[in-house]
Design a binder for these strands. Sequence first.
DNA 1: TGATTTTTGTACCGTATTGTATAAAAATAG
DNA 2: CTATTTTTATACAATACGGTACAAAAATCA
Lengths: 216, 216
Amino acid sequence: MVQKSSPAKRGRPRAYDEETALAQAMRVFWTGGYAATSLDELSAATRMNRPSLYAAFGDKQALYRTLIERYRAMARAAMAEALAGRPLREGLRRVYDGALSIYFGGKEPRGCFMIGTAVTEAASDRTVRASLNEGLREIDAAFEARLRQARDDGELARGTDPAALAKLASGTLYFLAIRSRAGEPRTVLERAADDAIGLICGAPRRETSAQAGASE
Amino acid sequence: MVQKSSPAKRGRPRAYDEETALAQAMRVFWTGGYAATSLDELSAATRMNRPSLYAAFGDKQALYRTLIERYRAMARAAMAEALAGRPLREGLRRVYDGALSIYFGGKEPRGCFMIGTAVTEAASDRTVRASLNEGLREIDAAFEARLRQARDDGELARGTDPAALAKLASGTLYFLAIRSRAGEPRTVLERAADDAIGLICGAPRRETSAQAGASE
DNA sequence: TGATTTTTGTACCGTATTGTATAAAAATAG
DNA sequence: CTATTTTTATACAATACGGTACAAAAATCA
C-alpha cells in the first residue's frame, strides 16, 4: 500500500485530475474510434494541452492502450459482481442489463468500447489485438465458470456443456454491443437478452406456453 | 437488360477494371478500417490515381459506402445459398464455415468487413449506421426464416421460438467475426460454431453422451 | 528572497492527407 | 489529318495531424 494522501510535491500542481481526464479521453475514443480521434479532440476533452497529455499518458497509442486495459478491468469487475451470489438467470440478466446501461450510457448509443473501437484496430495493432482477445476470453471464462457452477449445483441439467453455453452467452453480449452501436433501440435489445437467457438456462417450463409477459 | 459487350466508347479507354478495383479497395479498408485508410493506400491498391478514383467512385466516404453495400449483397446471397435446400444443421454449418473462410481469407485473419470496420464508423456516420443495421437485420431475418421453416417441418421442437434462436445464431456469427479478427485460431472458432449449432438445433441425443466426433 | 522543480501554455516543425487543377495520352468521329 | 472525347498522370494547394521545443507560471526548499 502506497501513501496516497499528500506527499507534498515539489513543482507546479497539476491542473487535471487523472481519473477524469482518462474518462474523458475514453469518451472521445469511444464514439470516434481510435484512428479518427485527433490529439486536438483529446486535448479539448481532457482540458489538458498536448505536452501535458504526452507527459501523463505517452503518445496516442499508449493512451489508447491504457484505456483498453482500464475498460477490461472495469468489465471484469462488473461481471464478477453481477454473476456472484445470485441464481444464474438473475446473474445473466444483471450482466446484460449492466452492459446495456453502459452501451446506452452516452449522449448517443455507443456500444462496447472494446468491440466498438478495438476490433477495428486489432487487425493492424498486435498489442491491441492481444489485449482485446485476452479481455474477451476473460468474459468467456467468467460465463463458463458460473455456468459450470450452476450445472454442478443442479441449476442446469447435468448434460450441459458450460464452455459451449458460455460462448453463446458471449455471443449474446456481442449482439448487444454491436446492435446498440448500430442504432437498434434498447427495448429490442432487452428483449433479445431475455430471450437468450431463457434459451441458455432452459425454458422456464412452469409458464403455460413460450413467451409471455416477462414481468418478474 | 443493357447492352454490355462493346458500345464502342469515345475517349481513352480505362486502365482499370471496376470490379477488381473495388475488391482491392475493400481489401485495404478491411484490414485498416475506414478512418486509418488513406487515399494513397487506396490509390496504390487499386492502381488508380487519385483523380480516377474520384471520377469513378466519388470521395472516400462514397467509396466506403459503396463497398458496405456490396458486402451486404454478398453476405445476403451467401446466406441464402447456404441455408436453402438442406437440413437445418447442415445449412448452419455452411453459413459458419463460409463465414470463417471469408474471415480467414486474407493474408492475416481480418474478420467480417461490416463488423470489423463499419461498427466503429457507425457511431459517427448515420449513413453507415443505417446500412450496417439493415445488413445485420437481414442476417437475423434469414436465420429466423430458416428456423421457422425448420420448426414447421418438424426439424425443431414445436415450442421453439425462431426469432429468439435467430438472435443466438447471429450472436454466434458475431463471435466468429470478432474473435477471428482478435487472433483466435480458426480451429477454436470451428469448434465454437459446431457447439453453437448443437445448442441451437438441440443435442443430437442419439449419441451416447454430449460431444463426440461430429463426422457427418 | 532566491534557487529548484514540475506543470502549463503557446508556438512551431515536418509530414501526411484530402481534394483539385492542368496537361498529356489514347481512343473515336468526321 | 484534325477535332473531340474520355481517361491518365503529375503537380499542386490548403489544411490537418502527431509530436516537441521553449518560455512562463506555480508550487516547494533552503
